[in-house]
């Protein structure tokens, strides 16, 4: 029988990799941001899982980290989507392939 902590960690790993697959395989910037969100949430699952099932010393650090992480993710998605809109205004597309200004 698999332990609950392991189950949570596996869930978060799978969630992380679904997000990663989204970032790697999709060429739409919004979808890539969605993938990043999923990866961040996978991290949150880990925080909560370790808080719930880890060794307990009366601390609330796991919950606190999750809360701060959610706040930071909110900031990230706001800036990210603003960037997407800015890019869209410049190249009239949300495809990442058109954005290759980093090319040397």
């Amino acid at each position: 029988m698999i332990q609950p902590l392991h189950a949570c960690l596996i869930l978060s790993s799978l969630l992380f990799c679904i997000g990663l697959a989204g970032v790697l395989a999709r060429h739409n910037t919004i979808l890539m941001l969605i993938g990043v969100e999923l990866m961040l949430n996978a991290a949150n699952v880990n925080f909560i899982a370790f808080w719930r099932y880890g060794a307990w010393a009366g601390q609330s650090a796991g919950v606190m980290f999750a809360i701060f992480s959610i706040a930071v993710a909110a900031a990230e998605i706001a800036v990210g989507l603003a960037l997407v809109i800015l890019i869209f205004r410049h190249v009239r597309t949300t495809s990442i392939d058109r954005v290759d200004g980093m090319k040397g």
């Binding site: 609950p4 902590l5 392991h6 596996i10 790993s13 992380f16 990663l20």
Partner: peptide, 20 residues
């Protein structure tokens, strides 16, 4: 992504952790 998933799950399963 699949490769990373396999590695991560393997790592998780290979780590002895106790659930409280």
């Amino acid at each position: 992504a699949g490769l990373v998933a396999g590695m991560l799950v393997g790592a998780v399963l290979g780590t002895p952790l106790t659930s409280h």
